[in-house]
Amino acid sequence: MLEIKNLHARISEGREILKGVDLTVKPGEVHAIMGPNGSGKSTLAGVLSGKPGYEVTEGQVLFQGRDLLAMAADERARDGVFLAFQYPVEIPGVNNMYFLRAALNAVRKQRGESDMDAGQFLKAVRAKLKLLEIGEDLLQRGVNVGFSGGEKKRNEIFQMAMLEPKLAILDETDSGLDIDALQMVSRGINALRGPKRAIVMITHYQRLLNYVVPDRVHVLSGGRIAKSGGKELALELEQTGYGAYGDAA
């Protein structure tokens, strides 16, 4: 599904942040990437999703065998790469539901499916809303406008559930969530686990991993994967901290 080989990247005109990341994620797998502040977690998410402002200086990323880095951000999205934002962006005046439907139809078109009509769409929406315990009023508001932190994160997972990506990258989706919201979000993520889908969770803390149990855990430190292991690695980190992995902030 995703093959990252010796990836080096920097902030445009700035210092190098990723210094040779290697990572392979197979369909059906859930990977957790953990690491201290400044270790390059968000840069990795940005580079994979095509966020402007980063420059890849070396290495390769293959997504389903294709050169991911050669694709524009919207192309990647339509091909099934989804990024759940750490800080979801507000778009005033644009109805959340309208936005979602536009996105869904763009993705469906790429898959060779027809546009969803209003009825089908509403039905699909209601099913997912229930799963995440999101009120329908959220749909009628502007995209992320006036949402609480928890609502924003839940909205990201809701969008993910609707768009059904092949590769979902969750950038600190658990940060700022209270325990109830964390459980709801986790339920949403777990519902999306499946043999054809890969999920990469970027997180500081182990607590999300209690609810979404990963197949693999990686420690990103100093711009490289410093250690990889099973789910027990997360527990170990909780005990020892990131200090053992070098240049922790």
Binding site: S49, G50, K51, P52, G53, A72, A73, D74, R76, A77, R78, F82, L83, F85, P88, V89, E90, I91, F99, A102, A103, A106, V107, Q110, Q159, L163
Partner: peptide, 12 residues
């Protein structure tokens, strides 16, 4: 740029 990227990341 964030708004544009957010929309594009959703496939627009």
């Amino acid at each position: 740029d964030e708004q544009m990227f957010y929309c594009q990341q959703r496939g627009l």
